[in-house]
Computed example of a mutant assay.
Amino acid sequence: MSTATTAGDQAYFSMASNPTQFAGAPFGYRILTPVIVWLLPVEATTGFVVVNILSLATVSSLLYIYLEKLNFNEKLSQLGMLSFLLSPMVLIYLWEITSTVDPLSYVFLMVGLIAIRDDNILLLSSSIFIGMLAKETTLLLVGIYGLKIWFENGIWAGIRQGIPIGIAGIIPYLGIRLIFGFESYYTISEVIRVLEHLQSSILTSPIMFLGNIYIIFGSLWILFPFGSVDLRKPILTASLVAIIPVSLQIFLGVSTTRLLFLGFPILIPISLVAFSEESTLTTMIALVAVGSGILGIVGGGVSFILGVGGLVPWVGTIFGIHELVIAYFCFQEYQTPLSKIA
């Protein structure tokens, strides 16, 4: 098991040993997970694993609650939860990239989305305030809330009600920097380095690059654009707009799959909107998922037989299971006959 595979992971691991030692921007400002690991009566390696397991389990439960609050039925809510849990990214967080702050930050993101859905301003403000100490991506909640109010009551209402929520995020953002000092990051040279890495990844192996992105959500990627055209809930419309900054993250970091996985509370619900009892699209997705699932499991099995090391065999197998689960729910939920394609 690898516990520190990037500069960020190494910084978090160092912070878990000495939280008062600033580990450099932007990682050193994300103190919540390292402090919790530091407080646990176990070594840092185990502490991160414990926090990640508990965080991801909590996120999956909160995602299920969120989907139910959006009026998805029980089966689709279960599908959304399983789509998250069976994403290869969850396996990677649990086994390969363990010294990370992402899983705990997802908890506050989900709590905040539920608070926005329920118009619970106190809970939303609290989740943003604490979540900012986990990772700055919690600020997405401010934009989603402001846009939701805008779509419901007009632009000025969105601005007026969004500003106090934004302050709840700015206070910890500035506070932690006053403690450790302001240090610039995402400089021009850093952006150039990221762009060069992105260009190299695409040009060296475009199929692998796209494949790595596809396995994050699998067939749900195909459903997403279809669900996007029929959004009737302001919170989902606001979330759709938020996919823009989530996508632009790939220009700020080299771990494309980790950055895009942040979009799970946006992409999964909107993809589920595309499910329709009479939809030929649902049947087509089921067939695509079956094909992807078989390829994933066969590929994983072959990798095991050939003795391929690392997570590659497991990622293929988990992805295959993920896709077969999607196909199963397609057929179970709507009893869609294969002959419908004919």
Results as ranks from 00 to 15, higher is better:
I159L: 14
I159G: 01
R160T: 09
Q161P: 01
I163N: 03
P164M: 09
A168P: 01
I170M: 11
I170T: 09
I170E: 03
L174C: 06
R177Q: 10
L178P: 00
I179Q: 09
F180V: 05
G181V: 09
G181I: 08
F182T: 04
E183Q: 14
S184A: 12
Y186H: 15
T187G: 15
I188S: 11
E190N: 13
I192V: 14
R193N: 14
V194S: 03
S200G: 13
S201E: 15
L203T: 14
T204K: 07
S205E: 12
F209L: 02
F209Q: 06
G211T: 08
N212V: 00
N212L: 12
Y214G: 00
I215T: 10
I215R: 12
I215L: 13
I215A: 03
I216R: 00
I216K: 01
G218L: 07
G218T: 10
W221D: 12
F224E: 04
P225Q: 10
F226W: 13
F226M: 10
S228L: 15
L231V: 12
R232F: 11
A238P: 06
L240C: 11
V241T: 08
A242K: 01
I244C: 06
P245D: 07
L248V: 05
L248T: 12
Q249M: 13
Q249W: 04
G253L: 04
G253N: 05
S255E: 14
S255Y: 03
R258D: 01
L260I: 07
L260K: 04
L260F: 02
L262C: 00
G263D: 01
F264R: 05
I266K: 01
L267S: 05
L267A: 10
L267C: 04
L267R: 01
I270L: 13
